[in-house]
Amino acid sequence: MIGNMDTLVQHLDAITEHVMRNTAGELDKYPRGVTPREEVYTAGNVSLLRFESPLGVEGTPILIIPSLINRWYILDVTEETSFIRQFAQQRPTYLIDWGYPDEEVGHLPLSHYYHRSIKRAVRQICRQHGISQVDMLGYCIGGTLAYAFSCLEPDLVDHLVMLTAPIDFTDAGIFATYAEHFPIEEFSASMGKMPGWLLAFSFQFVQPMGVYQKAKMFHSKFESESFMKLYNAMERWIADPVSFPARAYYEMITDLYQKNLLAQGRLMTAEGRKVDPAARRAKTLILNAGKDHIAPLCTTALPASDKAPVSEVTIPSGHIGITTGRNSKDACRSAIDFLMN
């Protein structure tokens, strides 16, 4: 009897291993980012990636600041939709990979990310190329971080592209309502990080029919090879959540969403430096999405005190669609045109 049980357990074990190996094999087909790259600098969890450009590509390097709440390769998810691939064809292209932060960085303030980490990356690029300024593109909260950096270090940023980046949180839509009610003090007292799975769930929660609509779309298009490629790559990205460091999350909810300090020019770094929009000089492109429910159009407007030259392009898509949807090529072209002029 015991012998039979052993055999059964062994069989179950073999089946589980087979399924897991196959699943892992499937996941391996969809790498984290498709453009070849190398890690040129590391500081803690944060690393600076340089993407492969064709020989002879030169000019002011572009530094991409991705969002802190998900993985960077949404901008490089397939060859057809990759922003990074397009940028790397034109200019030396770098990106800050925030890694997978955990509780060991839970005590670091938000300014650690928008000032110290970005400054280190810019310093490395400037040393590498013998230059004094870089161009920047920030996506989502990464755009907010890049904007704050350009306020603090106006001499280091020449051009800034803010891709669906919320700056003015006065009327930030559904997420502002959730931030207003979120029990932030209880969170601060009990959690060392905002878990990635909870963040991912909150994004699904605000679009309750999202999963059903996705399944419907899958059913109608699954025979298309190009659709399946993008669909699987996107699923790979969605299934790769990132935790948000606790103190930085606390400051993002209170200082940005609840008090709107950045737009009012009252945001301070942990070292006591004022993040002043009036100090900014970088030529700026606001690249926003008309159907964005995460960073609605009104949140992407800059404060009145910001006197830097600004232009704006609105793409008829959603927050994620602007990077991977059918209009993403227009968004990418707008960013490249702006950076080249």
Partner: peptide, 27 residues
């Protein structure tokens, strides 16, 4: 129906209270 529910202030407020209770328990 669900869209109205997830945008409803009272619903969000009650849900937040429930999260707060869970977090206090965890602490």
């Amino acid at each position: 129906h669900l869209e109205k529910l997830v945008h409803n202030d009272k619903f969000i407020s009650e849900m937040s209270k429930s999260i707060a209770a869970t977090m206090t328990g965890k602490a």
